[in-house]
Design a protein around this nucleic acid. Structure first.
Lengths: 199, 199
DNA sequence: AGTTTATCGGCACGTGCCGTGCCGTTGACA
DNA sequence: TGTCAACGGCACGGCACGTGCCGATAAACT
């Protein structure tokens, strides 16, 4: 009557990986509600210590889990048409932000961050500022190629673009659809675009 | 040895008012963390039932508390200079959103809303959409007076303006300072303003 | 090979909050 | 004065957080 060996009990980095994956799986299944450390532990068949040994808090775990799936979607294309590249990227971000597992995990981080200004700073550094920077990079290239006005201050433009996206997907209840993206890009191009304007 | 009568035990609407005020006071003192129904009850010297009899959930209480202090700051001025009116209003909103008691209560609602889509819808209806609408009203007037381009679709502009504001004050860690407001208004006026442009 | 040692899963604890039930009291209103 | 709903206080079960302790186990060292 030997018990089935089941999965061998892993340790170290392998376990860390499994835990991040379990967090994402759990988020996809049950959403933000029920996304607790205890639930992650139960799902991964793991004691809470195994989690707390790796991350000092629930927020830290969530941030790492988010990194795991978020970074791959960050890059803008560069087809030479800045409006089209932004458009494509905004849709991708919008879908990502409103689908599991990214949506629930992002929401969980935001909820957690409301009561913890240090976490809010980390969220901003690791995610929001990064996205803004990539946006700024892309539109700065467009400025150099003459697609956007040379004198424009694009730093705030990048923030406004990202802000509109996150506002709609995380605070509002409206989807990031064609109308929203086109409306946003209309405003952006009307402000800074060179095509069809004097000059 | 008669006990001091202290405050007479009030009932009904008077108590409701006291409870909302206690919620705001507590938020101002301890911030979002510690803003629990039990804490509100303790502070107001009230049993939890007295709260739950009035509001079905913590979120409902927070929304009502927020209404109590938020609505007064909603109105835009109309001096005839749309940029200046927006500027003044954005500063006021920025200060309100980052000061007690509005800041902590708003954060609490947002945190709560991340796990409750019905609450998110209510938050949007009662607050975000209202602010967007007043913004839209103001810039629509500006469109009629010729300050803004007649063909502009201002609905998305209103959302983008508000989105930038809320993004910065609630998700980002940066303050709503002169640079931010001016950068935002530069973009807005460059897109839709008529002054200094052809036509 | 055997021995050590850190990591592991499991369990229990104390704290805090949620939302509900009960109970004796109190204030408003008839 | 009497009635009755609203009240404050208390306790409960449930859940999650973060920590402490246990014996088991896998990896590293000898």
């Amino acid at each position: 009557m030997t018990d089935p060996p089941a999965a061998p009990r892993r340790r170290g980095a392998a376990r860390t990986d499994e835990l991040l994956q379990a967090t994402l799986d759990l988020a996809a299944e049950v959403g933000y509600a029920g996304l607790s450390i205890e639930a992650v532990g139960r799902r991964a068949g793991v004691g809470k210590h195994t989690i707390y040994r790796r991350w000092p808090s629930k927020a830290a775990l969530l941030l790492d889990a988010l990194s795991r799936v978020w970074t791959s979607d960050l890059d803008y294309r560069d087809t030479g048409d800045v409006r089209e590249d932004l458009r494509e990227q905004f849709f991708r971000s919008g879908v990502a932000l409103s689908s599991p597992p990214i949506g629930p995990v992002y929401r969980a981080v935001i909820a957690e961050a409301q009561g913890d200004s240090a976490l809010r700073a980390t969220l901003h550094e690791r995610f929001l500022a990064t996205v803004e920077q990539r946006t700024l990079d892309r539109i700065t290239r467009a400025q150099r190629t003459g697609e956007l006005a040379a004198e424009a201050n694009l730093e705030f433009a990048a923030e406004v673009l990202c802000g509109a996206l996150y506002y709609r997907s995380l605070l509002s209840t409206r989807p990031i659809d064609e109308d929203a993206v086109d409306g946003l890009l209309d405003m952006f191009m009307a402000a800074y675009g060179t095509t069809g304007q004097t000059g």
